[in-house]
Structure formats: C-alpha cells, structure tokens
Amino acid sequence: MGYLQEARENHVKKKVEEALRSKMKQKALKECDILCSKYAECARGRTFSVVWQCRKEAKELNNCLHQFTNDAILEDMKKAYMEQESKEKKQ
C-alpha cells in the first residue's frame, strides 16, 4: 500500500482527532490512577520543591501515561474509527 493511500485511509477530521486524543488521555489517566494519586500526595503542600522531591513519582507517572498516550495508539484509534464509519456508511 502506498504512503498516500494509507494517509487517506487514516485521515480523520480535526475535531474527530481531538475527540480521539481526549478519549485516549482519559483512558490513560484512568489506567494510571494510582500513580496520579501518589504524585498528588507527594506534591501536596509543596511549591518549588515538588520538582526535586517528587521526581521519582513524576517519572513513574509519565512512563505510565506514555504507555497509553502515544502516536501508535492514536493511529490505532483512528483506524478503528474509520472502520466503524465505513461499516455505518455501508448499512
């Protein structure tokens, strides 16, 4: 499959992509809820010191979030959306 054909098949409107990104982020936050809580607990009552005092918690949270929010997952979501749209058009 050529690059242009693949790009056309995976192209979605900007608003749809924004909605998919939002859905992806919500899922990531839900999956990483425990680490979010740990980071929030560490950060409570701190201002500038949160940067170095909570470095471990921040890194763990970012690693978890990255598992669920990356380009490959977004592309999979776009592909699934396009397949669903195609099925609905055929009906």
Rank of each mutant, 00 (worst) to 15 (best):
V50L: 13
Q5T: 05
K30I: 00
K23V: 04
D33I: 01
K23M: 05
C36V: 11
E6N: 13
L35R: 08
H66L: 11
L4M: 14
E6S: 11
R21K: 15
D33R: 09
F68K: 01
E57M: 06
N70G: 01
E41A: 15
K87A: 12
Y3E: 09
K23Q: 13
M82W: 05
G2S: 11
H66N: 06
C64Q: 05
A72G: 09
C64G: 04
N63V: 09
N63S: 15
Q67K: 08
G2K: 13
E57N: 08
E85F: 10
S37W: 08
R8W: 07
M1W: 10
M77N: 02
C42M: 08
E60W: 02
E9S: 04
K13N: 09
K38Q: 14
E88W: 10
T69F: 00
R8K: 14
M82A: 10
M24S: 05
Y39H: 11
E88N: 07
K56R: 15
S37P: 05
K89Q: 15
L29Q: 15
A19S: 04
H11F: 13
K25G: 05
W52P: 03
V50Y: 03
A58D: 06
Y39M: 11
E6Y: 05
L74V: 07
G2Y: 11
E9M: 08
A7T: 09
D71C: 00
D71I: 13
V16P: 00
K89D: 10
E57L: 06
K56A: 13
K78C: 05
C42S: 05
A7H: 11
S86D: 15
C54K: 01
E85D: 10
C42Q: 03
Y81Q: 04
Q5C: 08
V50H: 03
H66P: 00
K78R: 14
M24Y: 05
N70T: 00
K56S: 11
C54L: 12
K13C: 05
D71P: 04
K56L: 12
K13A: 15
L29G: 04
E18P: 01
R46M: 13
Q84R: 15
K13H: 14
Q84F: 04
K56G: 07
Q5R: 14
F68H: 10
K13D: 14
N63Q: 14
S22E: 15
A40G: 10
Q53V: 09
E41P: 09
C36R: 07
E83V: 12
M1D: 10
K38G: 06
L20G: 00
